[in-house]
Amino acid sequence: MEKLIEILEDIEPEVDFTSCKTLIDDHILDSLSIISLIAELEDEFDITIPTVEIIPANFNSAEAMLALINRLQEEE
């Protein structure tokens, strides 16, 4: 989780990622942030995020992202 928060804070420094649950719904992360984020997550966690997984439910909170990362790591 710590590594994930670090990546997120690097992309959007002024957001409290530990509590926010509406990162996509409230447009806190826009399409540019998502593109950066996916590239970073794939590099850091050695996963491939397929385009079907790019849905609000998977990116609305740090927990949702971590669940996605864990799931993809298990599937790899």
Partner: peptide, 9 residues
């Protein structure tokens, strides 16, 4: 953070 991803997008 703005212009970097903007280049590829």
């Amino acid at each position: 953070n703005h212009f970097g991803p903007l280049a590829s997008s």
